[in-house]
Design a binder for these strands. Structure first.
Ligand SMILES: [Zn+2]
Ligand SMILES: [Zn+2]
Ligand SMILES: [Zn+2]
Ligand SMILES: [Zn+2]
Lengths: 140, 140
DNA sequence: GTTGTAAATGCAAGTGCTTGCATTTATATT
DNA sequence: AATATAAATGCAAGCACTTGCATTTACAAC
């Protein structure tokens, strides 16, 4: 799972063009150990391909989200962050006061996901959630 | 609970100035039957107070959020929507494909909120959540 | 009622992200 | 290899929202 080239292969198989811009965006996401922002992806790509435009980065991210290949999560800090969908399933608690981030196991939201499917016929996308609130130190 | 003037009273008691702009933003939110956007609030206010600036609307919303007097929810459609915090507790399921919105009872997230407090000492703000995904008709 | 003050506002510029449109290009077909 | 074509890109403008700063103003103190 998630060997290098995984996402690019899937894009190709589904008929999407493997442009250099796309391949570089994909590899920035796959090679990041962490949650990467659009701006960070852009600066990696532009270093090797100087006339790429940031709108191409955003459009590629949009495509990857639509195909469920990456997840987008709001970890605060004014920009959203991206992560390969099949790598390290988990969630986060984000303190709105101090920015602290607590990691959560994916199992915590499974009961909710099941209940929403069963009781409301809704396929909730709870693959990489950020739950906002206050940590114990900032508690209200 | 939530009689007219409720929010304004609380602002006054906490030492915030009751400017005409603030009072009008507050009353737009309190008198809305639904989830209201910043733009909608602004156009109500500007109709009676023509030189108000939209940044004042946003700053007032920021204050009301911080004081837990209103909740902010992303119901899709490119702009976030606001609701009095003490009025009609509930959540939403939002279909990313067709935009359908299913209303949920607040009780659905109580077990999660309790578990996060107990197991992670985290006070999750789950007062008015939008859970994104696909409705049964758009199901993947 | 005047005066003093910090708080709030208006304005303009900035940020993150999106979109319409003309141009370029990956890929299929010959 | 040359050609055709829809898909993808670059560019510039636009949108929702934020921010720094100078000006105004609600409210308290006299
Ligand atoms: Zn994560
Ligand atoms: Zn905190
Ligand atoms: Zn609601
Ligand atoms: Zn749907």
């Amino acid at each position: 799972m998630n060997q290098s080239g995984h996402i690019a292969d899937l894009l190709g198989k589904q008929g999407y063009r493997l442009t250099p811009q796309r391949l570089m965006v994909v590899s920035a996401i796959e090679n990041s150990d962490d949650h990467i922002s659009a701006e960070e992806i852009y600066s990696q790509v532009v270093a090797r391909y100087p006339n790429v435009n940031i709108s191409t980065v955003y459009r590629t991210l949009e495509l990857l989200k639509r195909l469920s290949l990456v997840t987008e999560t709001d970890l605060e800090g004014g920009r959203v962050r991206y992560h390969p969908a099949d790598k390290g399933h988990h969630h986060h608690l984000v303190c709105q006061e101090c920015g602290a981030i607590i990691d959560l196991d994916e199992s915590l939201l499974e009961p909710l996901q099941d209940a929403l499917l069963r009781e409301h016929n809704f396929i909730a996308d709870l693959r990489h959630l950020a739950i906002h609130g206050r940590c114990v130190r900032c508690g209200r």
